[in-house]
Amino acid sequence: MPEIEAAQSGEIDRQGVACPTIAVCMPAYNAEHLLSRSLGAIGKSTRLPDEIIIFDDASTDRTAVVAVELGARVIKGEANAGPGAGRNLLATETDADFLLFVDADVVIDPGAIERLEAVLVSRPDVAATFGAYNDRPHHSGAASMYANLRHHFIHRQNAGECRTFWSGLGMIRRDVFCHFGGYDSHRFAGPSIEDVDLGARMTAQGQKIILEPRAQGAHLKKWTLKGLWRSDIFDRALPWARLIRADMMPVGQLNGGGMEQLRALLAYGILGAFALTLISAVPFWSVGLVGAAYVLANAPFFMLLLDRSGIRRTLIGMFLHWVYHLYASAIIGSALIARLSSKIWQSIFSSKQKSRSSL
């Protein structure tokens, strides 16, 4: 493919100044049906990368063949290792200054690479930057529209410095990535929050990460309701909770900020108000009152849903969002309580030990 082959050269900008080199690192598993779009979009970027490397994670289809036909260099895995391990391996296969991680099911916008590079070039103190899904999901089903627009909205609302990272479309200085040992592929063998964990480890050591929501890409994944809830709960919320309990994860980032906590409280308020109407004389309109407050608190997101997906899918999305606030806040909240309880008991035990030693 001429566009991608052209991306393998050119390290001088229009003023004749040496540019940082960029290597696109893309893990792929059974992605032959996706690569023509994801790699094709990279080849149409306003800033072409200097190298495109694919990790074929022991695919059973023609992923490797298609990637080579499209001009990418392919590293083949002998056994399915997961995206984190794949990205770590790809980082050792290049000497580029910046690593650009892109998922195989993400079709980046033409200016995405240029926007991310601009952050790292203009801010030498920033170690990494990442973008967002755009507001034009590939699949129009209710679950797909909700999941992708939720991601887009959360990233759009949290532009600037943050304490997390995203591998769907994220750029990082290669020396920093190697210094931190890349992704923890032992803790996160499959697709999970390995990128969030990396960002937390980096920022805990003083590294800066910038969310640049104008760097966007379309998500090609077709979500089902079952797949969405399984991913939200088992691939994200529960692993996140384990890290919180171990005091290894910051709280209050992206979808855990103050407004999100308020929305979660209102979501439970709806349940509480409904329960009170069943067991007491509390009027039923109180449920509507709390529900209206919940809708008002989420109005910007619900308006985005309405604008992009219509009334029927918006109503479904509103219900999915309410359920999301219930299960996500329950899991994360229990982890916070467990961590706080552990610290209290440790403090009590430490005080008793000091008292005994002073006798």
Score class of each variant (00 low, 15 high):
D13K: 06
G16D: 13
V17L: 15
A18L: 14
A28G: 11
A31Q: 11
A31S: 15
A31W: 06
S36E: 12
A41V: 03
G43E: 10
K44I: 06
S45A: 14
P49W: 00
D50Y: 01
I52W: 03
D56C: 01
D57Y: 06
V65W: 10
V65M: 14
V68G: 12
A72G: 02
I75H: 09
N80E: 11
G86A: 02
R87C: 03
E93V: 09
E93P: 07
A112Y: 01
V126M: 05
T129I: 03
A143M: 12
N148A: 07
I154S: 10
R156M: 13
N158M: 04
C162A: 10
M171F: 07
D175Y: 14
V176A: 13
D184N: 15
D197T: 00
R214M: 08
H219Q: 07
L220G: 07
K222L: 12
I233M: 12
P239D: 03
P250Y: 04
P250S: 10
P250D: 06
G252Y: 01
N255M: 05
N255V: 04
G257N: 13
G258L: 09
G258T: 09
E260H: 14
A267P: 01
S280Y: 11
V290N: 05
L306P: 08
M318H: 02
L320F: 13
A335Q: 02
A338I: 04
S341R: 10
K354S: 11
